[in-house]
Design a protein around this nucleic acid. Structure first.
Lengths: 143, 143
DNA sequence: ACTATGCCTACTACTATAATAGGAATAGTA
DNA sequence: TACTATTCCTATTATAGTAGTAGGCATAGT
């Protein structure tokens, strides 16, 4: 169980946008450079993020991307779900009809619990939460 | 983020062994039939489970597999880790040296939290716990 | 007009997954 | 001893997804 590179890049890109929130659009080129990501690949990822309404774009020179909502209104699950989908473990966890064995399947209960744990983290944390936490850590270092 | 079929089959097979614990070896053929899994594919999965020491085998007629330890001594993470590995999200979560950006990476904190949540479930639950919980549910139905 | 950006589409190398297949080795049993 | 049921070992394969690379069009600012 490992995250796709797309999801990891997406999360890093969105966190950059969150950090930049209020300062106008941020360019793919800049994000890619900051994060050591292929610009062309990131372009595709940004397009997907945009198509879900998570971010907005401004075309042309001095264009770029901004978050569609303030960082405290965006949950990590919003970003996560773009590529990893709402299902974290197995389809039958979300859709009992997916498998006829589901009602009696004790393995399903296991994956339900795991899924619940993951979604609990992702849904209860906003981009702003992450940024704030990072700042606290930073200042701890400086003491 | 979805589980591999191997991991799901492995979990179901091991739970069958847990249910059968104390009744001698259980055959791949039986498990495969009970669980609607390709016998040949399950054979490979059982071999992998055995190589980690999680289960033991008896060869020849009337052979089969048994858990190497009683169900209350086996954690779900023991089964999970055979195919999904101990890393649930990203390598850098377990190994900071994996990426030079790790110390400052705020995305890494996100994936750390998710990983912690998953491992918490898998490490705090045993096969016996799952079986017991399933029984409770069953008896609820009968009321 | 020029340039910097997003937007769109196609292509590709690589890898993992989920099997299928065949047969050798072993152990119980008639 | 022969027979049979099982694990064990190895090879092969079809398919899909991933992680890019690439080229050029559309748009907006200067």
């Amino acid at each position: 169980m490992k995250l796709s590179t797309r999801t990891r890049y997406a999360m890093r890109a969105v966190l950059e946008l969150a950090n930049n929130y209020g300062n106008g659009p941020l360019q793919t080129r800049i994000i890619a450079r900051n994060q050591d990501i292929s610009t062309k690949y990131l372009e595709q990822i940004m397009a997907a993020l945009k198509s879900t309404g998570l971010i907005r774009s401004q075309r042309g020179a001095k264009g770029g991307y901004i978050l569609a909502n303030p960082p405290e209104k965006i949950k990590l699950s919003d970003v996560f779900d773009v590529f990893e989908g709402p299902v974290v473990t197995v389809e039958c966890v979300a859709d009992e009809k997916y498998c006829k064995r589901a009602p009696d399947c004790i393995a399903r209960q296991v994956w339900s619990e795991v899924q619940r744990a993951v979604r609990n983290v992702l849904q209860s944390t906003t981009l702003q939460d992450v940024i704030d936490k990072a700042k606290v850590t930073k200042s701890d270092y400086q003491i």
